[in-house]
Every structure is written in structure tokens, then in C-alpha cells.
């Protein structure tokens, strides 16, 4: 069965993978905030952030194709929204063309805005890939727990993580059964079969959730899940975080 692998590359043994998940989460947030609050026209700053990210990707040993594939989710949005930006900003005109009544003009402000958005989007998505793909989901949840994230949300997330594969498997089985029994036919029937399949899946999931709850209760569930805490902050982790913060603020001061 084809699955969307959640922890596909989080088992690699690299410096980034070994970092404490809390540090990774904090570094990610710090990096994103720095990138978001950088002026649109400070290209050198974006370039340096990019260099930092490339260094992190290299350190993490994640396959480059995987990183690029994950990062490519922004393409749709860029193609739909961002391409219009250069044409819509008012200001000093840098190029104008006469294409009928439209007369698209491109201004410097528009270009700056366009590149800033593109660069910000790319940098943030790459950074998220590096830090999140190098952490297993359960470690990530544990990091959230230690950072005092609301425990209800963490427990819901952990249940979702557990059952994604189970439910996906059931859906794939139904899908395969449908595919092997139906060839051609009207599109309407396929859509109805699909809707019924999702309906069956809903009922099964709901019943599964109920029976999970009953078995949780019979095992003494008292409103919380105790997990072992193996997260320990090492000096390397603290140094990594300090270096990241220093590098980011260095770039900021240099080319803010």
C-alpha cells in the first residue's frame, strides 16, 4: 500500500537529527520570525539566510530531492498569486509594454515585493522541512509537551498520528477493492462509490474512536497520558541555538 510517510527521513543519524527537538522547534520559530521581519529590499540578508539554510540542509543529510519536493508545495501559490505582484504595485516605472488596452507596467517596488515574498516563502519552507523532517513526530510532540503546550491538543495530535496509518490503510483497501471490481462505467457511479466509501470510513472511524475510548477507560485512563521523558538538553544543543541566534542577529545587524 502506498502511504504518505510521516517520519520518512527522521531516522538518519546526523547532527541536526540528534539535536533536542525543543531546540529545533525554537530555532525554527526564531528563524521564521527573523525572515518575516526582514525588509523587502535587503537582498544580501536573504542571501545570507539562504546560505545558512543550505548549510543546515547539508548538516542534516536529508536527501536534497526530498527537501526540494517538500518545498515545492508553495509553487501553486506562487504561480497563482505572486506572479501578479510586479504588475500591481504603483511607483517608479522600470518597464512598460503596450499590449492592447491593458498596458502592463512593472515598477521597482513591485519587483522588490515579488522577490521578497518569493524569497521569504522559499526560505521559510526550506527551514521548516529541515527542522521538522529531522524530528520524529513523537519527539516533536514531546517537545511541545515540555514547552508547556496545552496537553489536550498534544493528546489529540498523538491520537491522530497513531490512527492516520490505520485509517489510511482501510481506505486503501476499499479503494483497491473498488478499482479491481469496476472498470469504466459512468463517472457518476464512480463518484457515488467514492462518497459511499468515505461514508463507510467515517462510520468505521467513529466506532473505532468509541472502542478506543472504552479500552482506554478499562486500562485506567484518568485524563492524561504519561510518557517517558528522555529529552535532555546537551551543551551542543544550547550552543547550536546560540549560534543560530547569533548568526541571525548578525545578518540582521549587518544588513537590516
Amino acid at each position: 500500500m502506498h502511504h504518505c510517510y510521516i517520519d520518512r527521513h527522521s531516522g538518519i543519524d546526523s547532527f541536526i537529527h540528534r539535536l533536542d527537538p525543543r531546540i529545533k522547534l525554537l530555532s525554527l520559530i526564531t528563524f521564521l520570525l527573523f525572515v518575516m521581519f526582514t525588509a523587502p529590499d535587503s537582498y544580501i540578508a536573504y542571501f545570507l539566510y539562504g546560505a545558512l539554510i543550505i548549510a543546515l540542509i547539508a548538516l542534516s543529510q536529508l536527501p536534497v530531492t526530498f527537501v526540494l519536493k517538500r518545498a515545492s508545495v508553495i509553487i501553486l501559490f506562487v504561480a497563482f498569486i505572486a506572479v501578479f505582484i510586479p504588475f500591481t504595485k504603483k511607483g517608479e516605472v522600470c518597464a512598460a509594454s503596450y499590449a492592447g488596452a491593458l498596458q502592463p507596467t512593472v515598477c521597482y517596488g513591485g519587483w522588490h515585493m515579488f522577490f521578497a515574498i518569493l524569497l521569504r516563502a522559499c526560505l521559510s519552507v526550506l527551514c521548516t522541512v529541515v527542522f521538522m523532517s529531522s524530528t520524529t513526530f513523537s519527539d516533536f510532540l514531546k517537545a511541545l509537551e515540555r514547552l508547556k503546550f496545552p496537553s489536550l491538543v498534544i493528546m489529540i495530535l498523538s491520537f491522530m498520528y497513531r490512527y492516520i496509518f490505520v485509517i489510511q490503510d482501510e481506505l486503501m483497501q476499499m479503494w483497491r477493492a473498488k478499482e479491481s471490481r469496476s472498470v469504466g462505467g459512468a463517472k457518476k457511479l464512480h463518484v457515488r462509490a467514492l462518497a459511499n466509501m468515505i461514508g463507510v470510513l467515517f462510520i468505521r472511524s467513529y466506532e473505532k474512536a468509541e472502542s478506543v475510548y472504552i479500552s482506554m477507560c478499562s486500562r485506567g485512563f484518568a485524563g492524561g497520558i504519561q510518557t517517558m521523558n528522555h529529552l535532555k538538553l546537551k551543551t551542543a544543543d544550547v550552543f547550536f541555538f546560540l549560534i543560530i541566534v547569533a548568526a541571525l542577529s548578525g545578518i540582521r545587524v549587518l544588513k537590516g
Binding site: 489529540i156 464512480h190 472511524s205 474512536a209
Partner: peptide, 24 residues
């Protein structure tokens, strides 16, 4: 009450799985 935890988690997994099915 407590039932929220498994129910919300499994339902989120359900919506997530249902989003994977493509139709023409």
C-alpha cells in the same frame, strides 16, 4: 469530556485520509 481525545484524533485522521482520495 474525556472522549474528546480519541474522537477528535481519529476524526482528524479520517478527514486527512479522505483528503487523499482524488476524484475526476
Amino acid at each position: 469530556e474525556d472522549r474528546i481525545i480519541p474522537l477528535m484524533g481519529v476524526m482528524a485522521a479520517f478527514i486527512f485520509a479522505a483528503q487523499m482520495l482524488n476524484f475526476p
